[in-house]
Design a binder for these strands. Structure first.
Lengths: 201, 201, 201, 201
DNA sequence: CATGAATGAGGGTTCATTCAT
DNA sequence: GATGAATGAACCCTCATTCAT
């Protein structure tokens, strides 16, 4: 197998294993045997275990970022809502890869992945903040609000969803609750429209 | 050293190590050497590593629960605000033990601690929900709202604070931002008072 | 509890454990917890683990020796037969203590019990040989035979029974087969009687 | 070193150690250091300690079975005698591997090797019984006897020889005694020939 | 007579990694 | 690009034993 394909295969396999066993449980032995090669073979494509995990993390971040950019239709407020909904659906579905992103925190400080994860998350926040700014520019979102603040609250909701799933208490923090939180956030930033607040003559 | 003290010492040491190295990095060797005994000595007080971690987790939960109950003054709304503030201060301080609670998710699914953590968290949620209910009973919090929903959002904010600290991006999600989110939540549930909504002439 | 009773209790417990787990599996922890005391308490009655096992072995040998002496009725040949039968019945029964004697070989050379076991077994052989000699003196057993040889064959049969039981193949070497071997041995040593070999006149 | 050779070397070393230290005393550390590798290296060739021991046991059984099949000359009765003699010589020699087979009972019930040993022993018994049957077919062994019974008695004699050696009392159960037992068994099954039993006029 | 606390030695096993092939 | 063989470090855990109390 060609190098690029093999690399991708290794990363994909790693993601699946991370979602299933967590980062500490994603050993080279497991990766290798799932890929169908021997352990040392992995070293032909990556310098060490950490590099594999980092690349997997990168892919995950890129994927979530793409998810943000894929939502292009509608007003900024609508797009934020859509992004929120899609996340909820992913978590609810069997696609564990969403949770995998969160598992990387689970690596523990020793793996040295948290810092990278932090940086990347800031990037994701920026993307959300950018949408908020668009809304402020076209007047659909209240000006004067801090876009970063909004972005953080969106992320906060998403994380809660993830964590609840990881802890196995999704029954208590279900999609409906998550939705309500989303609406609270969006309501608090939506600029008043003519229809909603008729001029008090 | 007598057993009860030793047990406590082991647990306390474990908590410190979990905060520093994460759960996977909290090995028996590290615990023992930090306590100042040999590894097998730990087995005189706990059946195995898992039991030590579980007890540490229990202590952590109990501690946070106590933090809830310690806030007894003021109206329910005020107490929720106070609980929120205290959490922020803890995270901001060097007392890493708050984060330790979160590290237990980091153990990975294989350690079998997540389920326990989930159950205990539901308990913490109930405590917060109870305060909300009190507010609803005395009319300071809007009736008709789901107390669990409010509790979850409070927890959501706290988790975000934790995660940001774990990822080393507390500079971006600082105490001020956290506060703003808290106020958003509390504002949304506060029952309108005479002063706030002057009678429309 | 008084020392002598405690000693006996420890030894009895040890025998039961040896029968169940084998000598290597009979740890001090197991003995102590079965007796209902702590491990160091055993050292108040025995110098070390080896001493406990040795005493247990001694008891076992004494018990088998007693079994030989209990059979006092009938001609020597009959007594040998009876001894053989009783052994078969013991093995067939659930009284695992017979097998325990054999487990001591299982201790491995490192436990240093085999030599003791060997010596004691020579004693048991002598007892059987003595019965043979009696028979030779009163003319019911062929003179000129080596009593030790007969004793060994008796023991050989008994051991085979034990080993088959230990290996879990008693279904193949059952009581009937064991009996047939016993009869072969006894037949070969029985002195011809008048009735059996009538004069060919 | 290549895997097949290494495997064989490990097994051979294990056999020597089992003969010397017994099964419980045959630790991975000992095996590894005797082989000249580190402990984890053994795991490249066997799944775990038990697999090593099982393979060693298998080799031992195969070897004894081969010993049976190597004796092909002479009448069945003669072959049984020869097999018996060879066993005696092996035990008398310094080739401790014969005893190793017996050490596997010594593993104690916990190692889970006894059952395997039992099964394999039944196979060995069948081989001996087969020879007896041949003798019955060509008329040199009394018909009507149960071949399995004879096989068991042959094995019984061999085991006794082994055990005596293990216990260090070979001086009491020496080759001569063992021989006498063998002759007793063979005599009891030999079919009468013309020469031996002259026709009664 | 017994305990509670601790130890040193060693058990089997897994891990990430290296290197010659 | 991949393998097979091996390593060193570390893992959790159990053992028999000691000693102050």
């Amino acid at each position: 197998m060609r190098s690029p394909e093999r690399r991708e295969q290794i990363v994909e396999t790693t993601l699946a294993l991370v979602a299933k066993y967590g980062v500490p449980g994603t050993t080279l032995t497991r990766i290798a045997s799932a890929v169908g090669v021997t352990t040392p073979a992995l070293y032909a494509h990556f310098a060490n275990r950490r590099e594999i995990l980092l690349e997997a993390l990168e892919v995950l971040i890129r994927r979530r970022s793409t998810a943000h950019h894929l939502v292009t239709e509608g007003a900024p407020l609508e797009r934020l809502r859509e992004i929120g909904h899609r996340h909820s659906e992913l978590v609810a579905s069997d696609d564990t890869s969403v949770l995998a992103l969160f598992e990387f925190i689970a690596a523990g400080p020793e793996e040295g992945l948290r810092e990278t994860l932090g940086e990347r998350h800031l990037g994701l926040l920026d993307e959300l903040a950018r949408i908020v700014e668009e809304g402020q520019e076209d007047g659909t979102i209240i000006r004067g609000l801090d876009p970063q603040q909004i972005a953080w609250m969106m992320v906060s909701r998403a994380w809660t969803e993830d964590i609840a799933a990881l802890m196995g208490i999704s029954h208590a923090w279900n999609q409906e609750r998550s939705n309500q939180m989303l609406e609270l956030i969006l309501d608090s930033i939506a600029a008043p429209t003519r229809e909603e607040t008729p001029p008090t003559e």
